[in-house]
Design a protein around this nucleic acid. Structure first.
Ligand SMILES: [Mn+2]
Ligand SMILES: [Mn+2]
Ligand SMILES: [Mn+2]
Ligand SMILES: [Mn+2]
Lengths: 222, 222
DNA sequence: TATAATTTTTAGGTAACTCGAAAAAATAAT
DNA sequence: ATTATTTTTTCGAGTTACCTAAAAATTATA
């Protein structure tokens, strides 16, 4: 029984549970959601009850929640919508990659299967969003690219920037200033043991050092 | 003080008041809104109080409400967003003109000045929506076309279809079947006194009779 | 293993939007 | 000018999503 009457708020919880559980693999605890979405833990428990009753999650008292098959579908659809809209904003409306997330948070809640199907087609069935995150197709399948963070990469490794972990505008603007974006080629020219910062060569041309904090949030192909 | 914290529901009320007052000219009564948006009259009175407190309407007890200047601006922005999205759906996503209204009812509530500004540009600053309704510009000005209904038009008059009054899918699909759409040329070849139906010549080619009900809902240029 | 700290749930309450029933005001009919 | 009808408002109450404070369960520490 796929309850279509899912509210704005419920969709946000489903997406949060999906992300915090590594795409539905692990269980998610009350405080995780509270930290992520900002309602108090008591409110999270209330919502757990409602979502469990709608068969979107299974809730074992004091042991967290897991997405049901049904719930995974619901979450994947929200993620799909969010990412398709982000592509639209960047590709068609010339938004900058640090401007799209907030608006997509609203657009992802528009209910219309036809709209999403047509939008997907209009955009040429994109596989990745402006931050390199994979876009689920109408069945919920997505192409997860092989990738590692700059923190994980070892000296001498070279790859193309395929995604960013953090989509915070402050972080993305910082990358712009460093002239780092998706599709850039990066080569690890040094790894500073002292503070975990990484020296890189951008597009075989520009040399810079990025902090551990930054290195953790950039993915290159591998 | 232009209160930006306006809810989904409040926006719907503002738009309804705008339409039911002929673009803010007349006062609107409790039952008008109740019939139009479907909440019970008691709920309408509650909302009147809230909107009045936000300086969006003036409410004289038992005498209906009127939009304030501020309220008119808010309503016009919602109308602008609604109609721009309808253009997007038809022009870019190939929606049919009878499919757009429901989705636009959702999209009109997305809050993002940049989004609307960019969407407007992307669409080429359209003046009219897919039903011939004028689109307010960012200042709230709109080009109201000179027009009359087929019911008002007299025998022998000829004009181009510039708008439809009713945007109900059933009505629009009926027009499709009759091969009547925006930009069609219509000539009044007979007005039937008995039932108010109108005989027309479509694009100097096809002859049909439309009922008074239909004639009332088609606008031609004049 | 007993105690302390943390996490989660329950209990009770608020604000927004809705309702039905009843009271009040305005309008229409006698 | 009364009376009847219609419209609008008030009142009490339900729902959703949130809160704080307190209780219960789990996990960590001594
Ligand atoms: Mn995003
Ligand atoms: Mn993204
Ligand atoms: Mn419409
Ligand atoms: Mn329209």
């Amino acid at each position: 029984m796929n309850d279509k009457n899912i509210s704005f708020t419920e969709e946000n919880y489903m997406k949060a549970i999906f992300h915090l559980s590594e795409n539905g693999q692990n269980e998610v605890f009350t405080n995780d959601i509270s930290d992520y979405l900002k309602p108090k833990p008591a409110s999270v428990t209330d919502m757990y009850k409602k979502l469990a009753q709608k068969n979107l999650i299974t809730h074992v008292k004091y042991q967290g929640v897991r997405l049901t098959e049904n719930g995974k579908k619901v979450a994947l659809l929200v993620v799909r919508k969010h990412r398709l809209w982000e592509v639209f904003l960047v590709e068609k409306l010339k938004f900058h990659w640090d401007q799209v997330h907030e608006v997509a948070e609203q657009l992802e809640h528009i209910h219309s299967p036809l709209l999403i199907q047509r939008l997907d087609k209009f955009l040429g069935f994109p596989q990745y969003d402006p931050h390199g995150d994979p876009i689920p197709d109408e069945k919920g399948n997505m192409n997860v690219a092989r990738k590692k963070t700059l923190e994980e990469a070892t000296l001498g490794e070279k790859g193309v920037v395929v995604a960013v972990q953090d989509t915070n505008p402050v972080f993305l603007k910082h990358l712009d200033k460093l002239q780092i974006g998706l599709k850039c080629t990066l080569e690890i020219t040094d790894k500073v043991e002292y503070d975990g910062s990484v020296e890189i060569l951008i597009n075989n041309f520009k040399r810079t050092i990025v902090s551990k904090q930054v290195a953790r949030n950039i993915y290159i192909s591998c």
